[in-house]
Design a protein around this nucleic acid. Structure first.
Length: 571
RNA sequence: GCGCCCGUAGCUCAGCCGGACAGAGCAUCGGCCUUCUAAGCCGAGGGUCACAGGUUCGAGUCCUGUCGGGCGCGCCA
């Protein structure tokens, strides 16, 4: 909750340097950087001072090092650098105590206290299946919601369902041709129908017109059309909720595009008043482009029905009125960058001073999937396969007597889903990837199960020995122990960066470092019993190691929770 | 054609606001179950950081151009 230990030392070092240099700390602080492990923990390069001081960098560094002193830091010059290393004490105890005190919320902060963030995520088009690639917006948005919440923000997560638009016309027209009336509530069947209808509409303009007309009738409020829409929407939402339950995702709001039917007229009128609108080729467009050389924003089709840009504008205005957000995130695929720039731009031209609080949190595409062509993997199927694979290993471990769970299926679900979720979050958002079964189901190396396993091992050790009330952190002198303490210390920094960049992968990557450092450490005990956590005949050492193990458990549990990955205690 | 994004080991990707020798996982090869659970650990090989200029004391990182790839560019969302 307080400032991260790591950041505290960094800023103390920066202040001492600033004082010695007689420069403002704001200038020095950005120059203090994390050092490579071999050189220490923090480093300050002196090259840029050489010209002003008319001295060689190494001379500056060594003079500086001898005039700077910070309690808890060992400061030494190394060529042109001034390096600082955290002393064994009190640093080790400070880090371990902080992690243990905060437990599963280690890394939380107050920077968002009193602020509100709206996060639009998942937001699938319904009447289409929830396919594997919908995982991206869903898990990225979910993790961002957790991350912002951890920094004290009030989070309003919105599932902005694509529940209004021509796709319903396609399903309706398709249903008349290919549908089985007894399966109107069967989403899988509707998907087949959608794919056929879409294919036909591309080849046959008359069929496309039928779809378009059906949507026009929906907007006109025709009872028959709306009743079909309602039925499809409800069965879709039911299916979606099963998936969300598996992923542990809960939205503050389900507010789809349909909510804004009937509210678009007022928005169009406001645009007309502030920016201006005009007819173009029968359609209604924003008069002034939102930017030079870019295409216009369409508000209404020639037949008078609305487009999603219109509804997005209405939704943005509505959200601002209701939540008064400080930030409003749109977790949407990068292929909609233009659309986002456009409707953000229109809001700005309308004079909405809050338009610059809207952020397109874009992410790369999953290749090898197209709903239109029917080449898709359903998310449910992928999760099932992951669970099944995990279950084999769970059964194996039960048979070998390594674990004793009463609920193998539930455990396998946690592991399988964790693999899929983490597999998506470990890469930077913007990265594209091609769907590959082996890849998404991977449970070794840099994977969710790898992290869960490290966490489970920590739990298992702590089951066999409880950390004592007091312990001597100074006993943790192994290089592997010190390396581990440092990764634990940096965790809160990673959380903060993840929020600053709207990038959950920063936390994901850092957790891999924590788990790797922990695995390396506890594996030492395989060969050398004196390096076990539960070392015999040295209560003081064992106590310190247990405390460190507990800090690691807290770090992994916190990080995995922030990512939306389960933290089983054995596996 | 115009706009946005990307181009780092065989494959998938990290690389912070430019700074000390370019890292990890997978795959390959070789070790470690007399293990606090081997979903683990250790070691080896493997890279002109697409290419060419520029800025800088210093560029994988910033700027320009070229090439290659992805996406987008009016009545789908």
């Amino acid at each position: 909750m307080s400032e991260p230990i790591y950041a505290r030392y960094r800023s103390a070092f920066a202040q001492a340097l600033a004082k010695a240099l007689n420069s403002p700390v704001e200038e020095v602080e950005p120059q203090v950087k994390p050092a490579e492990a071999a050189h220490g923990d923090l480093t300050f390069a002196t090259f840029h001072l050489a010209k002003a001081q008319r001295k060689a960098p190494p001379a500056i560094a060594s003079a500086l090092a001898s005039s700077v002193s910070v309690p808890g830091l060992e400061i030494v010059p190394a060529g042109p650098y001034v390096n600082a290393r955290f002393a064994l004490t009190p640093f080790t105890a400070e880090v371990i105590d902080a992690a243990r005190a905060e437990g599963r919320s280690y890394g939380s902060a107050e920077s968002g206290r009193g602020k509100t963030v709206v996060i639009d995520y998942s937001s699938p088009n319904i009447a289409k299946p929830i396919a594997y690639h919908h995982i991206r917006s869903t898990v990225i948005g979910h993790s961002l919601a957790n991350l912002y919440r951890s920094q004290g923000y009030r989070v309003e997560g919105i599932n902005y369902l694509g529940d209004w638009g021509k796709q319903f016309g396609l399903v309706a027209a398709g249903f008349e041709e290919y549908g089985d009336p007894s399966r109107k509530g069967d989403l899988a069947h509707l998907v087949e129908v959608y794919i056929k209808a879409n294919d036909r509409a591309e080849r046959e303009p008359a069929f496309d017109d039928r779809a378009r007309d059906f949507f026009r009738r929906m907007e006109a409020g025709e009872a028959v059309a709306l009743s079909f829409w309602r039925e499809v929407r409800e069965s879709s939402v039911r299916e979606l909720e099963k998936i969300y339950a598996r992923l542990g995702v809960r939205f503050e709001h389900y507010q789809g595009e349909s909510l804004y039917q009937g509210k678009t007229e007022a928005v169009i009128e406001e645009i007309a008043r502030t920016v201006g609108v005009k007819q173009s080729q029968g359609a209604l467009i924003v008069d002034m482009p939102y930017a030079e050389g870019e295409p216009p924003v369409l508000l209404k089709k020639a037949d008078g029905s609305t487009l999603y840009a219109t509804r997005d504008l209405a939704a943005a205005i509505d959200r601002h009125q209701r939540f008064g957000f400080d930030r409003s995130l749109y977790v949407i695929s990068t292929d909609q960058s233009l659309h986002c720039r456009q409707f953000f731009g229109v809001l700005e031209r309308m004079g909405k001073e809050w338009a610059d609080r809207l952020v397109h949190v874009n992410f790369g595409r999953v290749h090898g999937m197209s709903t239109r062509k029917g080449k898709i993997e359903l998310l449910n199927d992928v999760l099932d396969e992951a669970r099944n694979r995990a279950l084999e290993k769970v059964k194996e471990n039960i048979l070998a007597g390594r674990i004793h769970t009463a609920d193998p299926e539930g455990l396998a679900e946690q592991i399988g889903v964790g693999a899929i979720v983490f597999g998506d979050l470990k890469n930077r958002r913007i990265t594209d990837y091609t769907f590959d079964w082996e890849d998404v189901l991977s449970m070794e190396g840099h994977s969710g199960p790898y992290l869960q396993y490290a966490h489970a091992r920590a739990c298992s050790i702590l089951e066999k020995g409880r950390p004592p009330a007091g312990y001597e952190a100074g006993r943790l002198t192994l290089p592997e122990e010190q390396a581990l303490v440092r990764t634990v210390a940096r965790f809160p920094i990673a959380v903060r960066e993840a929020v600053e960049q709207d990038e959950p992968s920063v936390v994901a990557r850092h957790l891999l470092d924590v788990a790797a450092a922990f695995s390396r450490w506890y594996t030492l005990g395989n060969q050398d019993r004196s390096k076990r956590v539960l070392v015999e005949e040295d209560d003081s050492l064992r106590g310190a190691r247990l405390a460190l193990t507990d800090a690691v458990r807290a770090t992994l549990a916190s990080g995995l929770s922030l990512l939306g990955v389960a933290t089983p205690e054995e596996m």
